[in-house]
Nucleic acid binder design. Structure first.
Length: 725
DNA sequence: TAGTTTTAAGTTTTT
DNA sequence: CTTAAAACTA
């Protein structure tokens, strides 16, 4: 009798196999980039079902993005069909699922709607009435952060986020209002389940027995609240396996704690650790390039990632004069490669730090007829008209939703001014009822406005329950499912007609966008449950690439953050300039995160890696002089092939001379300086370069400016230091 | 008060 | 160069 290893296990290397077969104690898999961690997780799921007779329903797998979840489910199913019954979700999507079932134990109505960051800020604005928008946003951000760290308004540690009492008060008010409305924000999707799981009860006790095996991907990007959630889900007898790579932690700004990896063993009672250090994706020169940058980080576990592939082509670093040349260079690079037979556009990824950078590439690619797709940044669901329709839908689900009500009650204008709106929302509860009750007390104009709004809501409700005839207007088509409801709301509210007339003048496609929402809604069954699912799907997963983006041979335009978990044969990382990547306000731990971001981006490349850096770049409509990114200097020069004109700020030696006075005798550190554009400041740094001394001035406004002593000294007047008494 | 014009301000990264 | 807030007019 043969003890043959099944094919799906045979493809694994010894470490991967060890990770798959591991049972018992909690397991931490430290998996470097391209070391096959997805394969390990999917195989492990299948193995648990096949060889360990695990019930698929007792397995929970958590990923970082919905896309990753879909991919993982697909790959696991390919090994074993039964893997389709595994619960495979993001943390947030799991939280939403949990709250729909058990939220009532925490006083939450199951018909809640999820607020995105904009909605949260809008609610906060009603609490912080009169405060400038930026301040409201800042507080809103801090509240989100507090929830990431699992901090309540009364937690002493809240001081770490904002020590002011006023912050506590506002946070508490915000929580109270959100609770009254009966909706949740992103943070609540994690925080509330933890609370409910802790408070227990019979139903919870039974629920806790469900998941015997829990697997977590991208563990380095989990936050404190998510770690707490895991602690509640893991109970005696259940098995926990997490996979992560400290070098790929890039969501610190969102509350991610790399420390979760370091303290994993302490948190979960003595864990085993398995390292996956063989990289199958990138050629060794690419890997070395990526590694040489992240190696400059101090706070890292450190690992030796070895390429299983050949040396490969040298990564190419190209210096360009400006961003127009950058877009041209990239376009030509891609087109050139297409001359060779068998090449595909989809082998290429064009990567940048900020979404705004995609624009230039898009116009150039359109002009040159290079097919492309932009990942993320599709701000479709953030457009005004789309959010309006979604607000109307949300209001149908939850008529207590003050944010939705304020957004659409007077849209298009129907005489409901701020005062009337406030009087209605002050009533609380069902705002449709409140409006109806209060109407007689309002001005004549406002009364008709209320009537018009309620009529639209009524039409929406009718369409939702299927009591009405299928709606169809001259401007919008209603098909099946929920689309009738969308069309009913859009036409009856007057929003459709409003945009119809405006689109004709402005040439916008707003009505078309509303039709898109209707189309998307047609995939969901009419009725309250379908509507809830539709709204939840939009809030939690805004990638709408399933529709028409997946097919076709296209170049991928994508931010560095979004590349996580993906791989491409050829990658161009663009805009590697000081101020862009990294941003110049980054230092310490934040700078280290930027380095990891470079590491993530570079390790996406399988065969070829290109890096570009511009000497000038247009920002805010102004052309700015740029310095090459510090990261470029951190790469071992021997690894790269460098083309284009090397700028002065780029030299083979990372260390550069710094001195107290400039060699031309014009400037000294500490000199007080006046500049017409930025006011007063002082000389904070002097560097000697090929083109002469470079002076850095820090202004009182916080701005910093660098200039060449030889050419631009006349713009900076030296002020004699005046000392008082 | 609704809709326009003028002015200022501002850009990470995302579930 | 875009977008949001403030100021302004009908």
């Amino acid at each position: 009798m043969k003890t043959q290893v099944p094919a799906y296990l045979e493809v694994l290397n010894p470490e991967q196999r060890e990770a798959v077969f591991h049972t018992g104690k909690p397991l931490l898999i430290l998996a470097g980039a391209g070391s096959g961690k997805t394969r390990v997780i999917t195989t492990k799921i299948a193995w648990l079902i096949r060889e360990k007779d695990a019930d698929p329903h007792s397995i929970l797998a958590v990923t970082f993005t919905n896309k990753a979840a879909r991919e993982m489910a697909e790959r696991a199913r390919q090994i074993d069909e039964r893997a389709g019954d595994v619960m495979l979700r993001t943390f947030h999507s799991f939280g939403a699922w949990f709250l729909r079932r058990y939220g009532n134990l925490g006083g939450l109505d199951p018909g809640f709607v999820i607020y995105d960051d904009d909605d949260s800020a809008a609610l906060l604005a009603t609490i912080m009435e009169g405060k400038p928008r930026t301040e409201v946003r800042a507080i809103s951000h801090k509240i989100a952060r507090a929830k990431d760290f699992f901090l309540s308004p009364d937690d002493p540690e809240l001081d770490l986020i904002d020590h002011r009492d006023s912050f506590r008060t506002i946070y508490a008010k915000y929580e109270k209002r959100l609770n009254e409305i009966g909706n949740v924000d992103f943070g609540d999707l994690i925080k509330m389940p933890v609370r409910i799981l802790r408070e227990g009860g019979e139903a919870i006790r039974r629920f806790k027995e469900r998941f015997k095996m829990i697997l977590v991907d991208e563990y380095q990007d989990t936050n404190i609240a998510q770690s707490e959630l895991l602690k509640e889900l893991v109970c005696p007898g259940s098995y926990l396996c997490v996979v992560g790579d400290d070098d790929q932690s890039i969501y610190r700004f969102r509350g991610a704690e790399v420390k979760n990896i370091l303290s994993f063993s302490d948190n979960f009672g003595g864990a085993d650790i398995i390292r996956l250090e063989r990289n199958y994706r990138s050629t060794s020169l690419i890997l070395k390039t990526a590694d040489s940058v992240v190696n400059h980080n101090v706070g890292r576990l450190g690992k030796t990632l070895v390429s299983e592939r050949e040396k490969g082509k040298q990564p190419v670093l190209t210096f360009l004069s400006d961003q127009d040349n950058e877009t041209r260079f990239c376009a030509e690079l891609i087109l050139e490669s297409m001359k060779h037979s068998g090449n595909l556009y989809s082998n290429w990824a064009l990567v940048y730090r900020t979404n705004a950078q995609s624009l230039g590439f898009e116009t150039e690619f359109l002009r040159r007829r290079i097919p492309y797709r932009v990942v993320g940044s599709l701000k479709f669901y953030e457009r005004e008209e789309v959010k309006d329709i979604l607000a109307l839908l949300s209001f149908l689900v939850n008529p207590r939703d003050e944010v939705a009500f304020r957004r659409v009650a007077n849209k298009p204008s129907r005489g409901l001014g701020p005062s009337a709106l406030s009087r209605i929302t002050e009533q609380g509860g069902d705002l449709a009822l409140a409006a109806e009750k209060l109407a007689p007390d309002l001005s004549k104009k406002a009364q008709t406005g209320v009537k018009a709004f309620l009529k639209a809501i009524e039409a929406g409700r009718a369409a939702l329950s299927g009591d009405s005839m299928p709606v169809s207007s001259a401007w919008l088509r209603a098909g099946v499912g929920l689309s009738g409801c969308v069309v009913a709301l859009a036409t009856e509210s007057g929003i459709a007609e409003y945009h119809l007339s405006h689109d004709e003048i402005t040439g916008n496609q707003r009505l078309g966008n509303i039709q898109e929402v209707a189309n998307a809604a047609s995939l969901y069954p009419a009725g309250p449950e379908g509507l809830l699912n539709f709204l939840e799907h939009i809030e939690l997963d805004r990638s709408i690439e399933d529709s028409d983006d997946s097919g076709g041979d296209k170049v991928t335009l994508i931010t560095l953050h979004n590349t996580k978990g993906l791989e491409f044969r050829r990658v161009i990382i663009t805009g590697i300039e000081q101020g862009i990547f990294p941003r110049d306000d980054k230092e310490g731990a934040d700078l280290e995160e930027e380095r990891r971001l470079f590491y993530v981006g570079a390790t996406r490349a399988m065969d070829e890696l290109y890096l570009t850096s511009c000497a000038y770049r247009r920002m805010y409509g102004r052309t700015m002089q740029m310095q090459p990114s510090i990261f470029l200097k951190e790469i071992d020069q021997n690894l790269l092939r460098i083309t284009g004109k090397k700028p002065g700020g780029y030299g083979p030696v990372p260390e550069r001379k710094k001195s107290g006075t400039s060699s031309d005798g014009r400037w000294a550190i500490g000199d007080r300086v006046y500049n017409d554009d930025h006011g007063y400041g002082y000389v904070s740094e002097i560097r000697e370069d090929e083109d002469g001394p470079i002076i850095r001035v820090s202004f009182e406004t916080g701005h910093q400016l660098r200039f060449l002593s030889e050419h631009q000294s006349s713009n900076f007047q030296k002020i004699r230091e005046e000392r008082h008494g």
